[in-house]
Amino acid sequence: MTRRDILLGALFLWMAAVIWAAFLWAPAAAGFLGQSSRIVFFHVPTAWVATLSFLVSFIASVQYLRTRDPRWDVRAHASASLGIVFTILATVTGSIFARIMWGSYWNWDPRETSITFLLLIYAAYFALRGAVPDPERKAALAAVYAILAFVTVPFLVFVVPRIYWSLHPDTIINTKGRITMDSRMFRVFMASLAGFTGLAAWLYDLECRIEALRRKAEEEIL
């Protein structure tokens, strides 16, 4: 059994415990309809991992432009792919919450709007990659676009939702800098955050290895 297998087993157990605790151990928050508040254990960590993935993609893109090492391009590509998957998950979980609390899946709330923009930005990143045949030029142009895209992320994640009035509940650490969550909920929430980060790290490693193998196979064919 390798170290990777042990870590994967631990991650599996951790996530199973988080799911159990999220539904059976943590109490439902007051002020929310029924059990809808439990979605916070999945919605916020997916949004966190999506933002983290875009940050990794940005750092890897900067590193690619500095070093011209194709492995950084593989990392940037892998983390952007993960970012888009987790953004979709955050959007879907947010939509389910919106349906229960506000009566419709979508109503262009500032946070819904900003996550849509984020999705479009990273979809465009993949469109650009598909439109450049030369691998080196593709890597360089994609890195430039990823950096430009990341520049807009703070505006989308922090500025737009705070400038305009929103139905969205207060973020975990709100504008007053206070955490208003029940302590048991908070423990499950932090465990979920750690679990999702671990899950993203595992998927990132997997995606990097698959992408490296794909490129190696392409080189062999050529």
Binding site: F117, A124, A127, A131, V132, P133, L141, T152, F155
Partner: peptide, 19 residues
């Protein structure tokens, strides 16, 4: 520096310009 430039210009610009 890419292919299918006309379509790509809108595809790349729109998300950056939306905010």
């Amino acid at each position: 520096r890419a292919m299918s430039r006309g379509a790509l210009f809108a595809v790349l610009s729109v998300p950056l310009l939306l905010p």
